[in-house]
Structures are given as structure tokens and as C-alpha cells.
Design a protein around this nucleic acid. Sequence first.
DNA 1: TATAGTAACTTGCAAAAAGCAAGTCACTTG
DNA 2: CAAGTGACTTGCTTTTTGCAAGTTACTATA
Lengths: 119, 119
Amino acid sequence: MPRTKAKAGEFKRSPCPVANTLDVIGDKWSLLVIRDLFAGKTIYSEFQVSPEAIPTNILANRLTRLIEHGLVEKSAYQERPVRYAYTLTQKGRELGPVLLEMVKWGEKYFPGSKAMMKK
Amino acid sequence: MPRTKAKAGEFKRSPCPVANTLDVIGDKWSLLVIRDLFAGKTIYSEFQVSPEAIPTNILANRLTRLIEHGLVEKSAYQERPVRYAYTLTQKGRELGPVLLEMVKWGEKYFPGSKAMMKK
DNA sequence: TATAGTAACTTGCAAAAAGCAAGTCACTTG
DNA sequence: CAAGTGACTTGCTTTTTGCAAGTTACTATA
């Protein structure tokens, strides 16, 4: 029997804001999806063609997780066939500074790497 | 046959600084160890008593990874018995701003969470 | 109308990483 | 010399990843 699905934020492993933040975005992929959203990408296939080549099942999983945590919204932008656009919520956009600091650090310590983020 | 051990930074999944940064600290635990180092912790047992209760094998693994990536240094601070102190390198300390932004975001979106980081 | 194509996922399964408990090693202390 | 302690390591089960193939709902073409 699968265990009961936990709602976003229901369990906390600690009272530390860093730990709580990591429980939402602490993995190899979530912040890359958010980076793409900042870069203006909105549809499934756009995320797939990023240079890191995220596996499709992981992408689907991360998008629903980000929605559950309230960082991303999904809305149909056309019918027949229905197509969805993913966009950042205010909560998601407020991760911009985190991303920005990672860009700075990454550009400094991985020479040759270069951000392509929109502001 | 186990595959050849990759040196830190040898392979890159993309030219993006965010992706490269995540390859170093993109998991649930690494930044918590770094947080503890910022908080002044230096020895193994101190990291273990943090509220998140990191499993001992994961702690050992993360410390060596952080050393391999040049974010942390290990030095004996006493002989008989030999005891080691872990400290941040300059490269590691420069992750401070990333941590700081996570603290801000976490404090905003996880009411009740409160940072205990030293500056 | 049948055939092919496409976007957006879902499913199945093997491999890698995480997590828990117990064990080891080098000492120190009573 | 028996017990204790800090710092890990090992073994094993569970969970998460990652790859590939399959599915669904349409559209476009012959």
C-alpha cells in the first residue's frame, strides 16, 4: 500500500529555513526548470530541449511538485488540442535571487560557463 | 568494473553555471553541512547533532565530496587521538550569498522557521 | 477515410543513491 | 584490562533516477 500522499509543506524535517527550502528545490533538476521559466520557457517541450536533457518522467514529476508547492501554475493556453503553459507564481519568482547567486558562483568557479537567463 | 573516478569538475552536463553549481551542491544535504560550517561547526559529531539528523554515511560522503570540490578543508587539530576539523575554503565561503537568499525565502514561505546562521 | 505525425505525458524496469543499523578502529579513561 | 568515545565504514533494504517504450488526443496529409 502506497503511503498517504503528503501535502506540500506538511512535514518539516527541521525549523531551519534552509532545510525547508531544500525540501522544495534541493535536487539536481528543480532549479533548472525554474531557470527555464525565468528564461521565458512555458511549454513542456521547451523544457525538454534544454542542454541538460532532463528525462521526461523527471520533468513531469518536477512540474507537478513545483505546482504542489505553489511555485508554478499550469494553464491551458489553447483548446483542441489542449495545450498547457507553465508559469512562475510570485512565490516562484522570488527564488530569482537564489538563482542569481548561483549564477555568480557558477560563472566564477566554472570558467566558460555562461548564464542565459532573462532578468 | 567500477567506472573511473571522476575528478571534481571533470564532466559538465551543460554550459550553464546554475547546472554546474547544482552538480556540486544540488541535493538535500550538502548545503546543510555548509550552513553548519558557516555556523562555526567544525567536527564530525557537531554536524551529526543538527536538527535534520543527517545519516552518518551520508555525512561522511558529503564531507569528502565537498573536499573534492574544494569547498571544504580537513585538518588535524590534535594528535593522539587524531581529530580533524573541517572548515570552509574561500570557494566554500563564497556560497554564503546563496545560503543567505535561501534563508530569506525560507523565512518568508515557512512561517516559524528561523535561521541560526552566523554571519 | 486511412496513415502518419506530434505534443505531452505515463509506464516498466534496471541502476544509482539514500537511509538505517550494526560494526570497526584508534585511542582514552576508570 | 574492561568499558567508553569519536569518527567513520559496511551491509542491506528502500527510494529515487534515468532510460526506453508505450499511450492519448488530436492534426495534417494522401
